[in-house]
Design a binder for these strands. Structure first.
Lengths: 355, 355
DNA sequence: CAGCGAGATCAAAACGATTCAAATGGGTTA
DNA sequence: TAACCCATTTGAATCGTTTTGATCTCGCTG
């Protein structure tokens, strides 16, 4: 097990060189009381006489004292931070989740440490190690790999965690997710309703359960409509971003017969595909109908407004945080809970066929 | 209260799990050495015999020991974290900056604490306070208010900071910015070149220097083209997001005479405006030409591909981090530096008038 | 006046790591 | 044999806070 943070930056070879800030001792001296009294003034004001309290606060103010979280943490054995590990912060969907989580955490006086694994296992392990070193109070995690062995670091340290945008297997943890199977079914069901029979699913990495579930839903929809599974083209993009979408789009154009109804694993992929199609002179929705996933703000503003499956990103982040906080503060018999939101199809022009 | 919190954690805990994690003492006991030796094994392996080192590492592995960053920090007097405070993480531009900063920091063995002030002063102060409590090694800040008095918390604690996407006034700090005046000039200059004479600037909050500078540049361009200042319509959106853009767009439509060339303070606003215009049946670029700012990924994928002023987001984040690291590790006579990137106009269909 | 409880304050002991000076032990040299 | 050296290892101090019991000072009751 390597330390998450290696020595890198000019480590102080000469301790005592750098000025340590104002400490509780300085405040105590200035207010002419003991350090215990200063601590009480800040944490249990009701124990002090109004006079002493005021005197201490004046000294705090005057010296600009800010308590050291590390010392407080060391004593308390835990921090006031949550860790949030997302797949890709540049995806507005995760940005929205992070935002919701941050708001909810702040309401409980907790900070959030935001990290971006970039769907990279090494980065994921780095950050989970960081969470452990920091002894974060809890973690919100969207794991990269389905096995999620990297979470053992958290378990060993008794750090509770909640899965974000991922269903917990068994009763390992709480989780907040969206029913991706239904989401996929809605998307492809809609394409089928529009009369399309040559369906493609443009997936992200199949190692992600989200991508697998959306495929499952897509195939289910085909079953229900009596369309043969095997006619469904599946293209797997390497990552879930716009660039990978552009790539996947050109691969799609090479296929024959060319699908007429395309369901993309998320909006970034869909927007990338859209760019490729537009550049290639393929008309959307007339030649190819397109459905995305997440309904990020930009879907509605796309070249052709994008039909998408909406997930309540901010609400998911907030709910996950609430579950986590409840687990942290909760009594012994905490039972893991899986909150599942329903996806919602938002139809826009990219999928509406005119006849 | 704290005791209750500690008790709540361990549903999945095996018996024998203590509420506090494995400490260096446990490792020392398991490896039959002193704590000092364990510490050395981890931080100065060259001091130990190969045999002892191996024995200690085996114990570390077996117990799943992860050192407590708070204890280490307390002793060291500073942490291995940088703080990054951005205006809005849901804006892909800031996402890109954060990503660049994170990469650069990780290369130096530093972690980054990402925070989102949501352009809210209270949130900004909360997070800066958090940075101080955490004794972060340094901070990357895009302040909400122009006065930036909230930064005094950092100054008092000798925490170095670098301005991100904001020029430092005087020699207060290093900064990484883009020449927004030039950016504004490029944008509006381009609109004027296309023959537009009724120009509008769709700004975000004027409290943001970015918004003010872009306006300055816009007016400069008018001067140079001999167009009167006063004919420029200025609409101020409350926030810099898509929704605010939609609002601003409908306000714009009410104006008469209606401007034909519109420069938006950022791409989110522009995309919002674009949605409103399209919905209202106003043709872009024929009725109204549109220019955005930031050149986020989605600009190219917009309903009408969006002309935009590109800023190198990731590079800005990385550069800022490098400046900060240099200041942290640097010698006494550190001189603050302002790295200014040049904006670049990327012309797409939204601004090209056909005649 | 002795006794007592309440209110206010404090001294000292943690917490978990790092570091420095000192101790240990084995080998070499004078 | 004594003196010294080098490589290892360690005890103890330290960082800034919170918390726990102890102390001290009142004012009140019996």
């Amino acid at each position: 097990m390597t330390a998450a943070l290696q020595a890198g930056v000019g480590v102080t070879d000469r301790p005592g060189n750098r000025s340590r800030g104002v400490s509780i001792k300085d405040v105590a001296r200035a207010a002419d009381v003991s350090v215990a009294t200063v601590s009480n003034a800040l944490n249990h004001p009701e124990l002090l006489s109004a006079d002493t309290h005021a005197r201490v606060m004046r000294a705090v103010e005057k010296l600009g004292y800010v308590r050291s979280e590390s010392a407080r943490q060391l004593r308390a054995g835990q921090s006031r931070m949550l860790g949030l590990l997302a797949l890709d912060m540049r995806n507005p969907f995760f940005g929205g989740m992070a935002h919701g989580a941050e708001q909810a955490a702040r309401a409980d006086g907790l900070g959030v440490m935001l990290c971006d694994s970039s769907q990279d296992l090494a980065a994921e392990e780095f950050y989970l190690g960081l969470f452990a070193e920091q002894r974060v109070r809890g973690a919100l995690v969207t794991p990269t790999d389905s096995s999620a062995t990297s979470l053992s670091v958290l378990r060993r340290h008794g750090i509770p965690y909640v899965f974000l945008d991922r269903v917990a297997s068994g009763d390992e943890a709480c989780s907040v997710s969206v029913d991706d199977v239904t989401g996929g079914r809605l998307a492809v069901g809609h394409l089928l309703e529009q009369g399309h029979r040559d369906i493609a699913y443009l997936s992200g990495p199949m190692s992600l359960p989200q991508c697998r579930d959306r495929r499952t839903g897509a195939l289910q929809a085909c079953d229900e409509a009596g369309v043969d599974h095997d006619t469904v083209t599946v293209v797997e993009a390497e990552r879930l971003d716009v660039e990978a979408g552009r790539d996947a789009g050109s691969r799609l154009l090479g296929r024959s017969p060319r699908p007429t109804g395309v369901f993309c694993a998320n909006d970034l992929i869909a927007l990338g595909v859209l760019q490729t199609l537009v550049a290639a002179g393929v008309a959307v929705p007339d030649d190819i109908a397109l459905v995305g996933y997440d309904d990020i703000d930009f879907a509605a503003a796309a070249a052709v407004p994008l039909t998408s499956v909406r997930q309540p990103a901010a609400q998911m982040g907030a709910t996950a945080t609430e579950l986590l906080v409840r687990e942290i503060a909760g009594d012994e018999q905490h039972v893991h809970e899986n909150v599942e939101f329903a996806p919602e199809l938002v139809v826009r022009r990219s999928s509406i066929t005119r006849h």
